[in-house]
Amino acid sequence: MRRIGRKEFIKYGGGLIGLGLLGKFARPSLAFTGVKETKWQAGKEASKRVDGAGTVADEHNKFAMVIDVGACIGCRTCQWACKKENNIPDTVSPPWIEVFEVKSDVSVTGHPSPQDLKKGATTSYTEAPLKGRWYLPVQCNHCDNPPCVKACPVGATYKTKDGIVVMDYDRCIGCRLCVVACPYNARRFNWWQAEIPADETNPLVPVRPLGVVEKCTFCIHRTRRGQLPRCVEVCPVRARHFGNIRNPESEVYKLLEANLGFRLLEEISTEPSIWYITRGKKWLQ
């Protein structure tokens, strides 16, 4: 057998290392929602109802949501509209948005004890709004320092320049490390095959295959065209606000300037993009 000499070894070894480096600089795929990136760019000329928001992912535009928990009446319209808009099957439960019904003397950002849970920190409801309760809608926070993105071993979830944490359903291997890494339990998993009738399917949003993780996308198919996310659009009491937080003229910026806001579990330093404000319980009057 011909022996591989030192020179050959260096030559072939160098080639292999070079191949490895090529892999390192290969760009991640842009197929985050099944719709190609070029389509979003085509929507550049579309209406711009999201104040000041650009339509492509760029650093001058960062989406944020402000939720007025004082205004929220716990009607769950956002939850069900989101379910319809994003083709969420019944088997993914709860859907991407969850609304907690919280008793006034129970803390929510802390950890509920069994006693607290018995006292009423629960998601079950029959009627809303109830006296002595308030409502906390939660969904993916699109963190600036997302633990899920860090954890993913294949880069199937990543942060875009405009602040949205997106999912690549074609790349996800379903290991669910992102699910356990998310402190907000915002991620859902397709335990079963999604079955949605064709006439009820939103063609802009892909129906997720079996065995992948999914979550709120800030309605990327709408917001990048200048439309508001569905949950913001349908809120009957205008508790939800959405816009470009980098634009001082935007509604979200002004709201955060005028009101003190908080974000969920700030002590973990995930830097969420969803802010909560309150201007008193509006629906009590």
Binding site: C152, P153, R171, I173, C175
Partner: peptide, 24 residues
């Protein structure tokens, strides 16, 4: 345990990008 065992080689394909942050 994986939801998509058919994509297991994605871990190796995207290894160079992900090894910097992903414990898996």
């Amino acid at each position: 345990d994986m939801g998509r065992p058919d994509r297991i080689f994605n871990i190796i394909i995207y290894w160079p990008q992900r090894v910097g942050t992903s414990s898996l």
